[in-house]
């Protein structure tokens, strides 16, 4: 059933993008840290895991964990010079950092193979499961999404999550209440990095091949579209957004077969739609498709 394979492939990609979108959502939705370079974390996770497994021969599980750590560490590093600054600085610094990571992957051939990309990335349990490997990987991604979703929900419902929202809504106030907002920001960038790194590593082992071309700024814009449309500060929103935007993106490929419109126009048109969706959602429905759950905290009432 080739069509079933294609559907499973699409759903696996939904899962990977959902993880990626949740990582951004934690930073933007909950903590109000505008990150325009999230693709850097995705790339770091993917490259670290792929290179450790392919070049150093480490087990895949170690590669994935190392990918998460590398990406989380990069989050801390990036947060350091900017932690005391306003969100505008975060935005431009992260945007630039995203490009620098891609340039590094492109130029340091001794380490990353440069433009050739990393080939023949091993897949988990690939010898053992043969025929239904697609389904296996899909279920694997699904489980990861579920676990990450639960962990993030626990985190955002905890006092830590409340601190995050406090920073987002009134940083000065939470500072005056004695919260160490700078430390919290660094922690959020680290956790967001961990999740994005995980998404990147899973992506690398799924695609079997990665190159700097995979990590252009376009990917960041797509996941921004996902969380704005799906709903900020709501992980279910991020997942829904990933499904909506990714479906929209792939379905234009099918539309192209039946409507005589050039691919370049089609590609421009779909990015116009994504850009306009971001603008109109923020104006007319800033909360996104799924509203942030306003939880009341009995201990604070």
């Amino acid at each position: 059933m080739p069509i079933a394979n294609f559907t499973i492939y699409l759903f696996t990609m939904f899962g990977i993008y959902a993880l990626f979108a949740m990582s951004l959502n934690l930073q933007v939705g909950y903590a109000g840290l505008v990150n325009f370079g999230q693709v850097a974390f995705f790339a770091l996770g993917a490259y670290t895991s792929a290179l450790l497994v392919v070049k150093a021969g480490l087990p895949i599980a170690v590669g994935i964990i190392a990918g998460m750590l590398a990406s989380g560490f990069f989050g801390c590093l990036l947060a350091w010079p900017t932690k005391s600054l306003k969100s505008d600085y975060w935005a431009i610094t992260t945007l630039a950092a995203g490009e620098v990571i891609r340039l590094f992957a492109l130029n340091e051939k001794w380490l990353t193979e440069g433009p050739f990309g990393v080939m023949n990335i091993p897949q988990p349990l690939e010898g053992l499961i043969d025929k239904y490997y697609n389904i296996f990987y899909f279920i694997f991604v699904l489980i990861v999404v579920a676990v990450v979703y639960m962990l993030l929900s626990m985190l955002t419902d905890s006092p830590f999550g409340r601190n995050l929202k406090a920073i987002r809504d009134a940083e000065d106030l939470s500072k005056s209440l004695g919260k160490n907002t700078q430390k919290i920001k660094v922690q959020v960038m680290a956790i967001g990095g961990l999740v994005a790194g995980l998404a990147g590593a899973i992506f690398a082992h799924y695609m079997v091949y990665i190159s700097p071309e995979n990590f252009r700024p376009l990917e960041t814009f797509l996941i921004w579209g996902m969380i704005i449309v799906g709903g900020r500060a709501n992980n279910r929103g991020a997942i829904l957004g990933a499904v909506v935007i990714q479906t929209f993106y792939v379905s234009t490929r099918f539309v192209g077969n039946y409507v005589p419109i050039g691919s370049d126009l089609m590609s421009a048109a779909r990015m116009i739609v994504i850009g306009l969706l971001m603008v109109s959602f923020l104006i007319f429905r800033p909360e996104g498709l799924l509203r942030e759950r306003k939880k009341t905290y009995p201990d604070e009432v």
């Binding site: 990309g117 695609m207 091949y209 990665i210 190159s211 071309e213 995979n214 252009r216 376009l218 490929r253 192209g256 691919s263 089609m266 590609s267």
Partner: peptide, 9 residues
Amino acid sequence: VEDTETRPS
């Protein structure tokens, strides 16, 4: 005809 967008994914 399918567009590769000159990108791997």
